[in-house]
Amino acid sequence: MTEWLGSYATEAIWLSLKVASVAVLASLPVGIAVAWLLARHRFVGKALLDSVIHLPLVLPPVVIGYLLLVVMGQQGWLGRWLDEQLGLSFSFNWQGASLAAAVVGFPLMVRAIRLAFESVDPKLEAAARTLGANRWRVFATITLPLTLPGILTGAVLAFARSLGEFGATITFVSNIPGETRTLPLAMYSFIETPGAEAQAAWLCAIAIVIALASLLASEWLTRYTRARLGGQC
């Protein structure tokens, strides 16, 4: 692949996959917890939390990038604290790109998982409790497995969104080859470079293939789990 596509492009594809995978895996537990909270609990400030989570869907990505830079960057209050206390830096590295991707993918993930939680019949959970299962066992053995199709859908949506992330990434962690130059950023660079139209076109095709493959995979997984569960009994 490297020969005909060039090392920059190959690097960008692998980096994109890494950034998006880490973004999804790291945000999934948080996404499940927040979706659970929104689906099953009433609390003060629920509407506000819901709105804040959805903000990345409607805000210009450059605003997200700027906010991340201010808060999580080297000079940001949280970024500096994390760096000093845990040695965890998000400034101008691929972890920063993952963070940006996670933030923009988060609302899609939470929406899908929340819907799945809401569709789990609380009567099944009540039945499990009469059979001697405490709340944790009910969650682990009934609620979570029945939510699995929604969790997969949410993860795939967030993954696809992460792959396409551009504005927040370039604002927050810049466009550093091999470090933060993900697929969209590489494509942007190729388009800007005279004579690199072919590479840009190839990257475009690859982006479409990856996105399509992940959507098909999600569809197949959903169908498989639905067929096995066969609706609510």
Binding site: D121, R129, T130, L131, P145, R228, G230, C233
Partner: peptide, 17 residues
């Protein structure tokens, strides 16, 4: 879960998975 009471519901409520 601590009452040790078996409950048979009108709709069987079997776990589909």
């Amino acid at each position: 879960e601590a009452r040790r009471i078996g409950y048979v519901f009108q709709d069987a409520r079997l776990f589909p998975h």
